[in-house]
């Protein structure tokens, strides 16, 4: 059976020319494009809008954000300054290295620069005209080269007297010991003289140094 759309249904009678009874819209409601009024459509049921957040949590959130920003800013500044301080301390540390001092027990020897060093300190008796507040300390320093190669590289080290509070006093060799004076395995002597305050004449120690990292401190 062939069927076309609507072919089987009895067509409703429709007279396009028959006027339809319509209610006139209320004045002002009708659009100029409106062809007539339509039955009112009930409004769609919209989901209820979320309630406005109360004012207090919003302020709290803002305050929290401000605190986080502040802490971040402070941390950034601290890191910036810290990096510069660290960089400077590395620079200073590389050029002014911390001292490495080897303590030598009393009347014992210690190796440094291929030599064995030993020192014996004594207080010089007071002479007429000496400053009453100071004392001369004389150190006999013995140096024994390990080999001829070490003698070739020998240089007179620096000497000074120190106490354990960080005070230092000049100590000068009274003579000169050159490479020609040294023999491998044989002990040569050098006299070092220093002036120190009376208060430390028995406690100040002789320090022998080639560099800040090569130092010997002879215990009294």
């Amino acid at each position: 059976m062939s069927e076309t759309n609507g072919a089987g249904a009895a067509p409703a009678s429709f007279d396009a020319f028959k006027p339809v009874a319509r209610e006139a819209p209320a004045p002002g409601e009708e659009s100029i494009f409106s062809t007539g009024s339509w039955p009112a459509v009930p409004p769609a049921t919209l989901p209820p809008a979320p309630p406005e957040p109360p004012a207090r949590p919003r302020r709290l959130r803002r305050a929290a954000r401000a605190v986080v920003l502040l802490v971040t800013a402070v941390a950034l500044v601290a890191v910036t300054i810290g990096v510069q301080v660290w960089d400077r301390s590395v620079w200073v540390g590389a050029r002014y290295p911390a001292e490495v001092v080897t303590d030598v027990p009393r009347l014992q020897g210690a190796p440094l620069h291929g030599m064995t060093w030993r020192a014996d300190l004594s207080v010089r008796p007071r002479a007429l005209g000496d400053d009453p507040g100071v004392t001369s300390v004389v150190a006999t320093v013995e140096v024994t080269p390990a080999s001829a190669e070490q003698i070739a590289g020998y240089l007179t080290p620096d000497f000074e007297m120190r106490d354990r509070t960080g005070r230092r006093w000049q100590a000068l060799p009274s003579g000169t010991l050159t490479q020609l004076d040294l023999r491998a395995g044989m002990t040569s002597r050098l006299t070092v003289v220093a002036t120190v305050p009376n208060a430390v004449r028995d406690t100040a120690e002789l320090v022998l140094a080639y560099s800040p990292r090569e130092m010997l401190r002879f215990a009294r």
Binding site: R168, Q170, T195, V196, V200
Partner: peptide, 8 residues
């Protein structure tokens, strides 16, 4: 040029 030292 003499050294100036601690203590005197």
């Amino acid at each position: 040029d003499r050294p100036v030292q601690d203590g005197w």
